[in-house]
Amino acid sequence: MNIFRLAGDMTHLLSVLVLLLKIHTIKSCAGISLKTQELYAVVFATRYLDIFTSYISPYNTMMKLIFLGSSFSIVWYMRYHKIVRRSYDKDQDTFRPYILMLPCLILALLINEKFTFKEISTSFFLFVMWTFSLYLEAVAILPQLVMLQRTRNIDNLTGQYVFLLGAYRALYILNWIYRYFTEEHFVHWITWISGLVQTLLYADFFYYYFQSWKNNVKLQLPA
């Protein structure tokens, strides 16, 4: 564990808590894309399939449970909570998740780290699911970014949520650089490239977020 990874995990945790705070306290999910939340639930479900088989540390298991629990409860709130669901603007959230999930699944089947396991079936399945979750996480924010461009006035909590979500992966990139130089054989092109793509997708959001912060004006993305 290094400071970059810890900072990344804490930023990721904070993004989830900001979103839960918004939904739970003001009972509103205005401006939040349900599609992105559902994609994130799929990302965590496919990423942490081995949560009970491969134990790494109490921290690791606890964080996995938090991410799984929070992502699924956010989806539950937005779909079924009688007050929250009213503030969900489905006409603005029209991105079709399957056009993201299918290519990621095919890509995961084609390009995944060579597996050195004996029983090809289970471990291969787990590896493909893990790789799928990496590719899917890289693009999961797209429905949310599209929705932000359509929603004229982005409220602060939503802006902070997206900013923290982007920042966490940027911190992970620093973590990978650090681990590359401090650990031998730490080379994971798939993780690195998907993490880079993911962070680059936030580039224009970061730009406008920084501008709104610097000029102290409301955050607005150009249509």
Partner: peptide, 10 residues
């Protein structure tokens, strides 16, 4: 089994 080093991350 040696944990896949990238898989020790979240």
């Amino acid at each position: 089994v040696k944990q896949e080093s990238a898989k020790d991350e979240l």
